[in-house]
Amino acid sequence: MPTRRYDDTPGFGSLYARTVKATLRRADYEPDADGLTLELPRSAIDQDHLSAYRDVTGFPAGPTLPATYPHVLAFPLHLDLMSDPSFPYKPMGIVHLSNTITQRQPLPIHAEPAIRVHSTPERPHPKGTVFDVISEVSVDGEVVWTDLTTLLSRSSGDESAHVDLLPDPELSPTAWWDLRGNLGRRYAAASGDRNPIHLFKLTAQAFGFPRQIAHGMWAKAAALAAIERAGKLPDAFAVRVDFRKPLLLPSRVQFGFKPTGKTTDFALYDEQHELTHLIGQLQAH
């Protein structure tokens, strides 16, 4: 498995240009046989950028990074991986199914973590093919945070393939959130994820949505921020979310969570509690 090492985080301008090029490549394209691992030995944390991320997601200020922030640090390497000629799928149109973060200890805001990103072998899904992009964040040579992002490339799938889903919890709302139409653009500025489906009504309609939709990782971050503000987010944990129905912007949504022992179930629903946008489960370590 080849490894590419960087001295600095790759720039988004060139990454998005490569992403568009990779999406337009010919249908009979044959990728390289071996997967690719990307490594960034040192990632500097911009404190102004961190402050903007806290502002859009709701995480309170503090001496440690928000639990989802390392995903933002790793995201340029995700784009680099999926736009590389060795990557077997067209990056635009890939569907984010779920995300699992394991935090062994909080990361200090002035840390300079090392980041390693690679993908797993593909596996069948009723709607195509799924694979995982794995991110590992290390401080002083110790892995302290990992992220498993499960993605779907749509194609003729295997109807008999097993689909791993979190169970639907029975939750009453603990908060109502009014989400403005510019939320996708605000989160894009803070995260670097400028997928057109999140930005404007017209750009989202080009991909089949009636209007722009919220980022799945914004929804996960906002949920964990609400749990942290309630004093229920431990220092060490694993937390998985499944992304169900797209969250159209603007909208009003219900958020609910319920701790039971070391497990906290949470979910994000539409205003009528009829559609489920996100289901999550957190397990304290």
Score class of each variant (00 low, 15 high):
Asp178Trp: 03
Leu148Pro: 00
Pro2Glu: 15
Ser135Trp: 13
Ala188Thr: 00
Arg116Val: 11
Gly216Asn: 04
Leu65Gln: 01
Ser135Thr: 12
Leu282Val: 12
Thr120Gln: 03
His78Tyr: 10
Val239Pro: 01
Phe207Glu: 11
Ser86Tyr: 03
Thr64Leu: 07
Glu271Asp: 08
Arg229Asp: 03
His273Asn: 12
Arg211Pro: 06
Thr102Gln: 05
Ala33Tyr: 05
Gln103Val: 11
Asp132Cys: 09
Ala219Gly: 06
Glu274Ser: 05
Arg229Ala: 07
His162Asp: 02
His198Lys: 08
Thr174Leu: 12
Phe12His: 12
Ser135Pro: 05
Glu274Ala: 10
Pro91Phe: 05
Gln283Gly: 03
Val137Thr: 15
Leu97Glu: 00
Val130Arg: 08
Asp235Lys: 08
Tyr16Gly: 02
Asp178Ile: 12
Trp218Thr: 11
Gly141Met: 13
Phe12Glu: 10
Asp7Cys: 03
Ser160Tyr: 04
Ala61Leu: 12
Trp145Tyr: 00
Pro76Gln: 10
Gln283His: 14
Pro250Glu: 00
Thr23Val: 14
Val137Asn: 07
Ala221His: 06
Lys258Glu: 11
Arg123Cys: 01
Thr263Phe: 07
Asn195Phe: 05
Thr23Ser: 15
Ala188Glu: 02
His198Ile: 08
Pro250Asp: 01
Asp140Arg: 13
Asp168Tyr: 08
Phe257Ala: 10
Pro121Phe: 01
Ala223Ile: 14
Pro173Leu: 12
Asp80Val: 01
Asp158Lys: 14
Asp168Gly: 05
Lys245Cys: 00
Lys220Gln: 14
Tyr29Phe: 11
Pro106Cys: 15
Leu50Gly: 09
His285Thr: 02
Met92Lys: 00
Ser191Cys: 09
Gly11Tyr: 00
Phe237Pro: 10
Leu79His: 07
Tyr6Trp: 04
Asp140Phe: 10
Thr149Met: 03
Leu247Cys: 12
Val133Tyr: 02
Thr146Arg: 14
Leu233Lys: 03
His49Glu: 00
Asp265Ala: 15
Phe237Asn: 08
Arg25Asp: 12
Gly62Met: 15
Pro167Gly: 07
Lys245Trp: 04
Val239Phe: 11
Thr149Asp: 01
Asp132Arg: 06
Ile197Tyr: 15
Arg211Ala: 12
Lys127His: 12
His78Ala: 04
Thr129Val: 14
Phe257Lys: 11
Asp178Gly: 09
Gly35Ser: 10
Asp46Gln: 13
Ala284His: 08
Asp34Ser: 09
Leu24Asp: 04
Thr9Asp: 02
Lys232Trp: 06
Gly181Ala: 13
His110Leu: 07
Leu40His: 00
His285Gly: 00
His162Gly: 00
Glu159His: 08
Pro88Lys: 14
Ala190Lys: 03
Arg26Trp: 09
Ser251Cys: 00
Asp48Trp: 04
Arg123Pro: 02
Ala33Cys: 01
Asp140Leu: 13
Pro10His: 10
Pro60Leu: 15
Ala222Lys: 02
Leu268Cys: 08
Tyr269Gly: 02
Ala189Met: 10
Pro234Cys: 09
His71Lys: 03
